[in-house]
Design a binder for these strands. Sequence first.
DNA 1: TAGATTGTTAATCGATTAACAATC
DNA 2: TAGATTGTTAATCGATTAACAATC
Lengths: 221, 221
Amino acid sequence: MKDKYAMPKARISRLSAYFHELNRMQKEGRPKVVSSNLLGKTLGFSQTQVRKDFAAFGEFGKKGVGYFVSDLILHISRILGLNQKWNIALLGAVRLDKILAHNRTIIDNPFKFQAVFDNDQTKLGKLLNGVEISHIDNLEKVIQEQNIHIAIILTPELVTQKLVNRLISSGIKGILNYTPHRLQVPDNFPLVNLNLSMGLSNLCYYIRNCEEETESRLADY
Amino acid sequence: MKDKYAMPKARISRLSAYFHELNRMQKEGRPKVVSSNLLGKTLGFSQTQVRKDFAAFGEFGKKGVGYFVSDLILHISRILGLNQKWNIALLGAVRLDKILAHNRTIIDNPFKFQAVFDNDQTKLGKLLNGVEISHIDNLEKVIQEQNIHIAIILTPELVTQKLVNRLISSGIKGILNYTPHRLQVPDNFPLVNLNLSMGLSNLCYYIRNCEEETESRLADY
DNA sequence: TAGATTGTTAATCGATTAACAATC
DNA sequence: TAGATTGTTAATCGATTAACAATC
């Protein structure tokens, strides 16, 4: 049964991985039913871990049969919150269209790019990632009017913390920090840091140490 | 003393975070000496964890004094492998200049963007991210001639796995997968997955569950 | 019924935290 | 010497793995 408290961070990451893989299966039309063994093998997790991950949230499978792909997708999307719409604003007029395109199959349903902010007067009103660029002065107004839930941060280091404070005052629900700069946020405020520097640093460590170690070479961030 | 085997993945990520924060301190010129307490508070880790992380690799501090920032930077860069040069190739002609600019302060020393590959004839020879675009047919040649260590993947899903196989045959040392698509690589091959889909999925989970939980809201990937 | 595969309990393994002697 | 802070040991906490009864 649900013990929705204190799920390991790693479990939530795995859930995202399952979700993506299951969607791929559904798109291909097969298999309709998947075992923990197959799903685990595909993604590099043990079958026990797969079952444990699902069992932590309920009984999603059928003994002797496996998990129905379509069921599992519904369950996981409910757990992760991908069964609702999330409106996103980008801070910093950076072209992400190619990156967004790669993520489209997963991202397009629950997420909607709704606003882009910049302080460059010459960019205002132009389209970027399919959205008109707004001036950063209108941050609070647009966030509230457009009901933005999530902000993706790609602004210069020096102005970022002030903007983050304004975002939080405006009632933003969560922040994805796409820069390597640390943000100060209230305790427990939902913040995910995703940046190239850390990814590359970690990769270098693994490259230099991969002969010696035995596992956990596949790192997700 | 060193027990270079089996360092927790989380520790390596924290090491990257320390490294970045210490570089900021050095750039500002102060403090020259930092305690585990201060460093931990700044980054949201406990002082015990900070000391444990360093002690796992050696004795970097002075009892009663703390850690010399400049020493610590050297130690960590040696551990992570940021004391050497890494040549990087990008697969998929995607403009990353803005994103690279954000990461510049950390990235610029150890990493060098050396090549960009694409299969679009019209793009060949043009500059992207400061480098001339090469045709993907020349992958093996360029990788070997330019001594590329790391590939960043931003190619379309359907062609990617073949390219990954070619990269590995060419002797690439590690791969940073910037797309949400799973790559098949040999056991223990250094691979880091870094993608927006997973970041956003995790963020959504944290947004919907942040009232109930107590800690670990700050997730790094 | 026999084979397959889940959900769960117990055992192991690993990481974090607390406490404190060592020492600058 | 007194105050500060490390490095390390022991205790706690948490996550993963192994094993197996339940059951489709």
